[in-house]
């Protein structure tokens, strides 16, 4: 049972591993480079992944979702928008994880602009990711990207909310109520 679960989860990984070994055998001239790169990447992973995932767990446990949702309604003004940024920034997981949360936010009456800001922050301002980005690509790279992304998120949210009509937005809210 347990072995079956393992095989199911790692099936694709095992297939790629077989191909990888095949590559090493069939292309001995390139094998050394492939092996070195693999070892380098795994070393980085072993060093960096454990603290990052502890951080993810702590954020997940200590930041109560329901409470934050309450403060993002229409008329929450700057506070709601700031909260959208914070909520997205402390999130964990890939962007598609943000869509169901956004649906909950919309259903509970968060303004569309706040939801768009939240999506933007989730996509690119996540704090654990930011720390990891500093670690892998350097502080200059990560900080520069952070600095340009904040105005970018507002710009994208602003343009989108201007381009969409009131009817469009109404339909999105109705759809998110059903999709939730």
């Amino acid at each position: 049972m347990k072995l079956n679960g393992f095989l199911k989860k790692y099936r694709a990984t095992l297939v790629v591993a077989v191909i990888f070994v095949g590559f090493l055998v069939l292309s001995p001239s390139k094998a050394a480079r492939a092996e070195k790169s693999l070892v380098d990447q795994l070393k980085t992973m072993l060093l960096v992944m454990p603290p990052i995932f502890v951080l993810l767990g702590l954020l997940d446990v200590w930041v109560p979702r329901e409470t934050l949702i309450r403060y993002m309604g229409k008329g929450s003004g700057l506070k709601g928008t700031a909260l959208g940024i914070v909520l997205g920034a402390v999130a964990a997981g890939p962007l598609y994880g943000a869509f169901p949360v956004a649906a909950v936010l919309m259903d509970k009456g968060a303004s569309f602009m706040n939801v768009l800001v939240f999506i933007g922050a989730w996509s690119t301002l996540k704090i654990p990711m930011f720390l990891f980005e500093i670690q892998s690509l350097g502080a200059r790279f990560a900080v520069a990207r952070f600095l340009i992304d904040v105005p970018g998120i507002f710009l994208i949210a602003f343009i989108l909310s201007k381009v969409l009509t009131a009817g469009d937005i109404e339909r999105i809210y109705a759809a998110s109520h059903n999709a939730k």
Binding site: V16, A31, A34, S37
Partner: peptide, 14 residues
Amino acid sequence: FLIVVMIVAVVLAV
């Protein structure tokens, strides 16, 4: 992660 690590290793070797 392991899949991408292996693919990147091969891509970089090629």
